[in-house]
Simulated assay, not measured.
Amino acid sequence: MPVGVILLILIAVMIYFGLLQRVLDRMRITDSMAIIFIGAMIVGSFLPNIPLGSRMSINIGGGVIPIVIAIYLIATSDEDIEKLRSIIASIITGITVYIAGKVLPAEPGTMFIEPIIAFSILAGIIAYVFGRSRRGAFIAGILGITISDIISAFGVTGRTASTTIGGAGILDAVVISGVIAVGLCEIVGETGEKLKGGSWAVKKSKKEPPKMNVLLKHDEPKEEGENDESSK
């Protein structure tokens, strides 16, 4: 069974037991919507490819569904800046991964880890850096891999052989990249929040006097003045 399918099943189980509720809430995705997306990717990966003509086709689970998910998340984003940032991050991720595939050895056994996993990790990191938010990073992670595969399918000088967009392990890369992008956002975000509430907050509290004491200091002279005026 493909690694991507296994990861999707594990994610679905975690969603069912509520272990990813906070992550989904911050991405503004409901449990039911996430399960639908996961199920569509799993089922679609086993369905026949959709022919596009000129010896090109696209896999449903690894090509069509990730594009649909990305478009849906971009369209439902609250702010225009987040939509634009997600699109730009996706393009940057896709181009970078494509260039890395040309520069680095992409054949199995030529790297200390599988090339598809290496490119997935690279895509996830780039998507996190440029996507910034959890939603933007996830969009850039899954759409960036797809963009890279589309560029590879067409090639620089044109295609000479039949190819499938979203095939040959791309589903694995899409899932791994998306998970890494969101995971980095979650880890870094939580670490930052703890630091702000930890040592940083303690240092700040030592520099600033308590608000209650400041209020009392302002109130006491006022009360004494009022008493003096009343006694007169």
Rank of each mutant, 00 (worst) to 15 (best):
G136D: 02
I121W: 03
I145L: 04
D149W: 09
I147G: 01
I145Q: 05
T164F: 10
F119I: 08
P108V: 10
I165V: 15
I99K: 04
A140K: 10
R132F: 06
F112S: 04
G158N: 07
T164I: 13
G101S: 01
A161Y: 11
S162V: 00
G101K: 04
K102G: 15
Y128S: 04
V156S: 14
I147P: 00
V103S: 05
G158M: 03
P115W: 08
T163V: 13
G155Y: 12
G169Y: 08
V129K: 03
A106E: 03
S120E: 07
A161D: 14
T163M: 11
T160W: 01
S162Y: 07
I116W: 10
D149Q: 10
L104V: 07
T146V: 15
V156L: 15
G167Y: 13
G166D: 14
I117P: 04
I126H: 01
I147D: 01
G169L: 11
R135D: 00
A140S: 14
A137N: 04
T164M: 11
I116Q: 11
G155H: 09
I126R: 03
G167E: 14
I150L: 12
G167W: 11
I116E: 07
T163F: 14
G169H: 07
G167D: 12
G109P: 06
M111A: 11
G109Q: 05
A106F: 06
S133D: 08
T110W: 04
R159V: 05
G136L: 03
G109C: 10
I117T: 15
T164V: 15
T160I: 11
G101H: 03
G136N: 01
L143I: 03
I145R: 01
A127I: 02
I113S: 09
I139P: 01
R132L: 08
F112H: 00
V156C: 09
S148A: 12
A161S: 14
S133Q: 08
S152Y: 05
G155N: 10
P115Y: 12
T160S: 06
D149K: 10
A153K: 08
G155D: 11
I126A: 07
F130H: 01
A100W: 02
G109D: 09
I165T: 14
I99Q: 00
R135S: 05
E107V: 12
I116K: 11
T110V: 05
I150Y: 05
P115V: 08
I139Q: 00
T163E: 10
I117S: 13
I151H: 13
I142H: 02
I117Y: 14
T164G: 04
S152N: 09
G167L: 10
A127P: 07
I113F: 13
I142Y: 02
R135L: 09
G131R: 01
G155T: 05
I125H: 07
A127R: 03
A161G: 09
S162Q: 10
I125L: 14
T157Y: 15
I145D: 02
I165C: 13
S133P: 04
I126S: 03
L104T: 00
V156M: 15
R159M: 13
